[in-house]
Amino acid sequence: MANAAVATAGAVRPLRYGSISRDRKWALRWSYFFLTLFAIFFLMPPFYMLITSLKPKEEIAAITNPWWVYAPTLDNFIELLTQNAYMTFFRNSAIVSVCVVIVTMLISVIAAFSLARMKFWGSATLATGVFLTYLIPDTLLFIPLFKMMSWVRDTTGIELVNHWWTMIILYPTLTVPFCTWIMIGYFASIPKELDEAALIDGATWMQTLTRIFIPVALPGIIAATIFCFTVSWAQFLYPLAFTTSTTELVLPVGIVTTLIKGDVFNWGQIMAGALLGAAPPLIIYAFLMDYYIAGLTAGATKG
Protein backbone atom coordinates (compact mmCIF):
# COMPACT_ATOMS: atom_id res chain seq x y z
CA MET A 1 0.00 0.00 0.00
CA ALA A 2 2.81 2.31 0.89
CA ASN A 3 4.52 1.52 -2.35
CA ALA A 4 1.36 2.34 -4.25
CA ALA A 5 1.64 5.90 -3.06
CA VAL A 6 5.16 6.13 -4.30
CA ALA A 7 4.00 4.54 -7.54
CA THR A 8 1.37 7.13 -8.27
CA ALA A 9 3.90 9.77 -7.44
CA GLY A 10 6.73 8.40 -9.51
CA ALA A 11 5.24 6.61 -12.50
CA VAL A 12 3.81 9.67 -14.18
CA ARG A 13 6.66 11.92 -13.30
CA PRO A 14 8.30 12.40 -16.71
CA LEU A 15 5.32 14.38 -18.09
CA ARG A 16 4.60 18.05 -18.52
CA TYR A 17 5.87 20.44 -15.89
CA GLY A 18 2.45 21.36 -14.50
CA SER A 19 1.44 17.77 -13.92
CA ILE A 20 4.71 17.10 -12.13
CA SER A 21 3.90 19.71 -9.58
CA ARG A 22 0.35 18.35 -9.24
CA ASP A 23 1.75 14.85 -8.73
CA ARG A 24 4.19 16.18 -6.19
CA LYS A 25 1.30 17.68 -4.29
CA TRP A 26 -0.45 14.32 -4.23
CA ALA A 27 2.71 12.51 -3.25
CA LEU A 28 3.05 14.98 -0.44
CA ARG A 29 -0.50 14.38 0.76
CA TRP A 30 -0.03 10.64 0.67
CA SER A 31 3.25 11.01 2.53
CA TYR A 32 1.56 13.01 5.25
CA PHE A 33 -1.28 10.52 5.42
CA PHE A 34 0.98 7.52 5.89
CA LEU A 35 3.32 9.38 8.20
CA THR A 36 0.34 10.15 10.39
CA LEU A 37 -0.61 6.47 10.44
CA PHE A 38 2.90 5.45 11.38
CA ALA A 39 3.16 8.17 13.99
CA ILE A 40 -0.03 6.87 15.58
CA PHE A 41 1.44 3.37 15.62
CA PHE A 42 4.75 4.55 17.05
CA LEU A 43 3.30 6.88 19.66
CA MET A 44 0.33 4.83 20.80
CA PRO A 45 2.04 2.83 23.60
CA PRO A 46 3.60 5.85 25.29
CA PHE A 47 0.30 7.69 24.92
CA TYR A 48 -1.55 4.78 26.47
CA MET A 49 1.04 4.75 29.25
CA LEU A 50 0.24 8.38 29.93
CA ILE A 51 -3.52 8.03 30.05
CA THR A 52 -3.39 4.89 32.18
CA SER A 53 -1.10 6.65 34.65
CA LEU A 54 -3.72 9.37 35.06
CA LYS A 55 -6.56 6.99 35.88
CA PRO A 56 -7.77 6.24 39.39
CA LYS A 57 -7.74 2.60 40.50
CA GLU A 58 -11.48 2.08 40.20
CA GLU A 59 -11.50 3.30 36.65
CA ILE A 60 -8.79 0.86 35.63
CA ALA A 61 -10.63 -2.01 37.29
CA ALA A 62 -13.93 -1.17 35.62
CA ILE A 63 -14.47 -2.07 31.99
CA THR A 64 -14.88 1.37 30.47
CA ASN A 65 -13.41 2.99 27.42
CA PRO A 66 -9.70 2.35 28.00
CA TRP A 67 -8.70 5.19 25.68
CA TRP A 68 -10.27 7.89 27.75
CA VAL A 69 -9.75 9.21 31.28
CA TYR A 70 -13.01 10.08 32.97
CA ALA A 71 -11.63 11.28 36.29
CA PRO A 72 -7.98 12.24 35.82
CA THR A 73 -5.87 12.15 38.94
CA LEU A 74 -2.21 12.49 39.84
CA ASP A 75 -2.57 10.01 42.71
CA ASN A 76 -0.48 7.38 40.96
CA PHE A 77 2.44 9.77 40.59
CA ILE A 78 2.09 11.09 44.12
CA GLU A 79 1.97 7.61 45.64
CA LEU A 80 4.95 6.56 43.58
CA LEU A 81 7.10 9.56 44.39
CA THR A 82 6.36 9.42 48.09
CA GLN A 83 7.48 5.82 48.16
CA ASN A 84 11.07 5.53 49.27
CA ALA A 85 11.66 2.53 47.08
CA TYR A 86 10.93 4.29 43.81
CA MET A 87 13.17 7.22 44.66
CA THR A 88 15.93 4.76 45.56
CA PHE A 89 15.61 3.07 42.17
CA PHE A 90 15.76 6.42 40.48
CA ARG A 91 18.83 7.49 42.43
CA ASN A 92 20.62 4.20 41.80
CA SER A 93 19.87 4.41 38.10
CA ALA A 94 21.07 7.99 37.90
CA ILE A 95 24.36 7.35 39.71
CA VAL A 96 25.05 4.17 37.77
CA SER A 97 24.31 5.77 34.41
CA VAL A 98 26.43 8.85 35.03
CA CYS A 99 29.37 6.79 36.27
CA VAL A 100 29.11 4.38 33.36
CA VAL A 101 29.11 7.30 30.93
CA ILE A 102 32.29 8.69 32.47
CA VAL A 103 34.09 5.34 32.61
CA THR A 104 33.04 4.43 29.08
CA MET A 105 34.04 7.70 27.52
CA LEU A 106 37.44 7.65 29.21
CA ILE A 107 38.17 4.13 28.04
CA SER A 108 36.72 4.32 24.56
CA VAL A 109 37.84 7.76 23.41
CA ILE A 110 41.44 7.12 24.36
CA ALA A 111 41.42 3.59 22.97
CA ALA A 112 39.69 4.66 19.77
CA PHE A 113 42.32 7.35 19.21
CA SER A 114 45.10 4.87 19.68
CA LEU A 115 43.44 2.34 17.36
CA ALA A 116 42.47 4.82 14.67
CA ARG A 117 45.63 6.87 14.52
CA MET A 118 48.59 5.48 16.36
CA LYS A 119 48.45 1.76 15.52
CA PHE A 120 50.56 -0.80 17.33
CA TRP A 121 51.29 -4.47 17.00
CA GLY A 122 47.91 -6.18 16.91
CA SER A 123 45.87 -2.99 16.81
CA ALA A 124 43.95 -4.05 13.72
CA THR A 125 43.11 -7.35 15.37
CA LEU A 126 42.00 -5.49 18.45
CA ALA A 127 39.71 -3.24 16.42
CA THR A 128 38.07 -6.32 14.97
CA GLY A 129 38.01 -7.80 18.45
CA VAL A 130 36.12 -4.79 19.74
CA PHE A 131 33.58 -5.42 17.08
CA LEU A 132 33.38 -9.12 17.84
CA THR A 133 32.69 -8.31 21.46
CA TYR A 134 29.31 -7.33 20.17
CA LEU A 135 28.58 -10.88 19.16
CA ILE A 136 28.82 -12.05 22.74
CA PRO A 137 25.49 -11.06 24.26
CA ASP A 138 24.92 -10.24 27.91
CA THR A 139 22.62 -13.24 28.01
CA LEU A 140 25.65 -15.48 27.55
CA LEU A 141 27.88 -13.66 30.01
CA PHE A 142 25.72 -13.31 33.06
CA ILE A 143 26.00 -16.92 34.21
CA PRO A 144 29.82 -17.09 34.14
CA LEU A 145 30.04 -13.54 35.55
CA PHE A 146 27.93 -14.66 38.44
CA LYS A 147 30.32 -17.52 39.19
CA MET A 148 33.27 -15.16 38.83
CA MET A 149 31.77 -12.87 41.43
CA SER A 150 31.62 -15.61 44.01
CA TRP A 151 35.26 -16.35 43.19
CA VAL A 152 36.13 -12.70 43.84
CA ARG A 153 34.36 -12.86 47.17
CA ASP A 154 36.06 -16.07 48.19
CA THR A 155 39.53 -14.76 47.40
CA THR A 156 39.31 -11.08 48.31
CA GLY A 157 36.27 -10.83 50.53
CA ILE A 158 34.74 -8.15 48.32
CA GLU A 159 31.02 -8.81 47.81
CA LEU A 160 29.92 -7.88 44.31
CA VAL A 161 26.52 -9.53 44.24
CA ASN A 162 23.50 -7.49 45.26
CA HIS A 163 25.14 -4.07 45.08
CA TRP A 164 24.05 -1.43 42.61
CA TRP A 165 27.61 -0.23 42.12
CA THR A 166 28.53 -3.60 40.62
CA MET A 167 26.61 -2.36 37.59
CA ILE A 168 29.24 0.34 37.09
CA ILE A 169 31.75 -2.44 36.53
CA LEU A 170 29.47 -4.50 34.28
CA TYR A 171 27.68 -2.00 32.06
CA PRO A 172 30.84 -0.77 30.28
CA THR A 173 31.07 -4.20 28.66
CA LEU A 174 27.91 -3.23 26.81
CA THR A 175 28.74 0.38 26.04
CA VAL A 176 32.50 0.49 25.42
CA PRO A 177 32.57 -1.61 22.23
CA PHE A 178 29.93 0.47 20.47
CA CYS A 179 31.37 3.79 21.65
CA THR A 180 34.87 2.76 20.64
CA TRP A 181 33.54 1.75 17.28
CA ILE A 182 31.76 5.05 16.75
CA MET A 183 34.83 6.95 17.83
CA ILE A 184 37.18 4.97 15.59
CA GLY A 185 34.89 5.91 12.71
CA TYR A 186 34.87 9.53 13.70
CA PHE A 187 38.60 9.79 14.26
CA ALA A 188 39.36 7.98 11.02
CA SER A 189 37.39 10.61 9.12
CA ILE A 190 39.53 13.44 10.46
CA PRO A 191 42.14 14.42 7.83
CA LYS A 192 45.60 13.04 8.58
CA GLU A 193 47.12 16.46 7.81
CA LEU A 194 45.61 17.86 10.99
CA ASP A 195 47.42 15.61 13.44
CA GLU A 196 50.57 15.41 11.32
CA ALA A 197 50.76 19.18 11.48
CA ALA A 198 50.23 19.13 15.21
CA LEU A 199 52.91 16.48 15.72
CA ILE A 200 55.38 18.40 13.60
CA ASP A 201 54.66 21.41 15.78
CA GLY A 202 55.85 19.30 18.72
CA ALA A 203 52.54 18.35 20.27
CA THR A 204 52.43 15.05 22.13
CA TRP A 205 49.93 12.39 21.21
CA MET A 206 47.84 13.24 24.21
CA GLN A 207 47.80 16.91 23.26
CA THR A 208 46.81 15.99 19.74
CA LEU A 209 43.94 14.02 21.15
CA THR A 210 42.67 16.63 23.60
CA ARG A 211 43.30 19.74 21.48
CA ILE A 212 42.45 18.52 18.01
CA PHE A 213 40.60 15.24 17.92
CA ILE A 214 38.21 15.71 20.77
CA PRO A 215 37.01 19.17 19.66
CA VAL A 216 36.68 18.10 16.04
CA ALA A 217 34.89 14.87 16.95
CA LEU A 218 32.73 16.52 19.60
CA PRO A 219 29.41 15.70 17.91
CA GLY A 220 30.47 12.06 17.87
CA ILE A 221 31.47 12.20 21.52
CA ILE A 222 28.15 13.73 22.48
CA ALA A 223 26.38 11.08 20.45
CA ALA A 224 28.38 8.30 22.09
CA THR A 225 27.65 9.79 25.51
CA ILE A 226 23.95 9.83 24.81
CA PHE A 227 24.05 6.28 23.53
CA CYS A 228 25.96 5.21 26.56
CA PHE A 229 23.51 6.85 28.92
CA THR A 230 20.52 5.34 27.14
CA VAL A 231 21.98 1.86 27.28
CA SER A 232 22.90 2.09 30.96
CA TRP A 233 19.52 3.50 31.83
CA ALA A 234 17.70 0.73 30.02
CA GLN A 235 19.82 -2.33 30.88
CA PHE A 236 17.62 -5.04 32.32
CA LEU A 237 19.30 -8.43 32.48
CA TYR A 238 22.36 -7.74 34.65
CA PRO A 239 20.48 -5.97 37.44
CA LEU A 240 17.75 -8.61 37.23
CA ALA A 241 20.30 -11.34 37.75
CA PHE A 242 22.69 -9.64 40.16
CA THR A 243 20.62 -7.46 42.48
CA THR A 244 17.71 -8.42 44.66
CA SER A 245 17.37 -6.07 47.64
CA THR A 246 14.95 -3.22 47.19
CA THR A 247 17.68 -0.75 48.12
CA GLU A 248 19.98 -2.03 45.38
CA LEU A 249 17.67 -2.13 42.38
CA VAL A 250 17.83 0.14 39.38
CA LEU A 251 14.78 1.58 37.71
CA PRO A 252 13.72 -0.91 34.99
CA VAL A 253 14.14 -3.91 37.24
CA GLY A 254 12.65 -2.08 40.18
CA ILE A 255 9.51 -1.28 38.23
CA VAL A 256 9.12 -4.70 36.70
CA THR A 257 9.86 -6.70 39.83
CA THR A 258 8.43 -4.64 42.66
CA LEU A 259 5.51 -2.75 41.12
CA ILE A 260 3.98 -5.72 39.32
CA LYS A 261 2.56 -7.79 42.09
CA GLY A 262 0.58 -10.80 41.03
CA ASP A 263 -2.78 -10.08 42.52
CA VAL A 264 -2.71 -6.37 43.19
CA PHE A 265 -4.19 -4.04 40.68
CA ASN A 266 -1.36 -1.64 40.22
CA TRP A 267 -1.39 -0.68 36.60
CA GLY A 268 -1.83 3.03 37.20
CA GLN A 269 1.33 3.09 39.24
CA ILE A 270 3.22 0.77 36.93
CA MET A 271 2.47 3.03 33.99
CA ALA A 272 3.34 6.13 36.00
CA GLY A 273 6.61 4.49 37.01
CA ALA A 274 7.43 3.45 33.47
CA LEU A 275 6.64 6.91 32.18
CA LEU A 276 8.89 8.62 34.72
CA GLY A 277 11.55 6.02 34.01
CA ALA A 278 11.37 6.79 30.31
CA ALA A 279 11.55 10.53 30.97
CA PRO A 280 15.33 11.10 31.33
CA PRO A 281 16.28 9.54 27.99
CA LEU A 282 13.33 11.27 26.34
CA ILE A 283 14.28 14.67 27.74
CA ILE A 284 17.91 14.29 26.70
CA TYR A 285 16.75 13.18 23.31
CA ALA A 286 14.34 16.10 22.95
CA PHE A 287 17.16 18.58 23.50
CA LEU A 288 19.98 16.79 21.75
CA MET A 289 18.14 14.97 18.99
CA ASP A 290 20.43 16.15 16.23
CA TYR A 291 23.57 14.98 18.00
CA TYR A 292 21.88 11.72 18.84
CA ILE A 293 20.97 11.07 15.23
CA ALA A 294 24.10 12.46 13.62
CA GLY A 295 26.37 10.46 15.86
CA LEU A 296 24.43 7.26 15.52
CA THR A 297 24.40 7.38 11.74
CA ALA A 298 27.93 8.66 11.27
CA GLY A 299 29.38 6.13 13.68
CA ALA A 300 27.69 3.27 11.96
CA THR A 301 28.35 4.29 8.35
CA LYS A 302 31.98 5.09 8.79
CA GLY A 303 32.83 2.19 11.04
Binding site: L43, P45, F236, P252, A278, M289
Partner: peptide
Protein backbone atom coordinates in the same frame (compact mmCIF):
# COMPACT_ATOMS: atom_id res chain seq x y z
CA UNK B 1 11.16 16.62 8.58
CA UNK B 2 12.74 17.31 11.94
CA UNK B 3 9.41 17.25 13.73
CA UNK B 4 8.31 13.97 12.15
CA UNK B 5 11.66 12.36 12.66
CA UNK B 6 11.51 13.39 16.31
CA UNK B 7 8.14 11.77 16.83
CA UNK B 8 8.97 8.59 14.94
CA UNK B 9 12.13 7.89 16.90
CA UNK B 10 10.42 7.86 20.30
CA UNK B 11 10.04 4.03 20.54
CA UNK B 12 13.80 3.64 20.15
CA UNK B 13 14.49 6.07 23.00
CA UNK B 14 12.20 4.61 25.67
CA UNK B 15 13.89 1.79 27.61
CA UNK B 16 12.60 -1.49 26.17
CA UNK B 17 11.54 -2.99 29.48
CA UNK B 18 9.31 0.00 30.13
CA UNK B 19 7.67 0.32 26.76
CA UNK B 20 7.07 -3.43 26.75
CA UNK B 21 5.12 -2.94 29.97
CA UNK B 22 2.69 -0.68 28.19
CA UNK B 23 2.33 -3.26 25.42
CA UNK B 24 1.71 -5.88 28.07
CA UNK B 25 -1.13 -3.78 29.38
CA UNK B 26 -2.44 -3.16 25.86
Amino acid sequence: QRKWRGMLLVPWVIPAAMSTLSWLWL
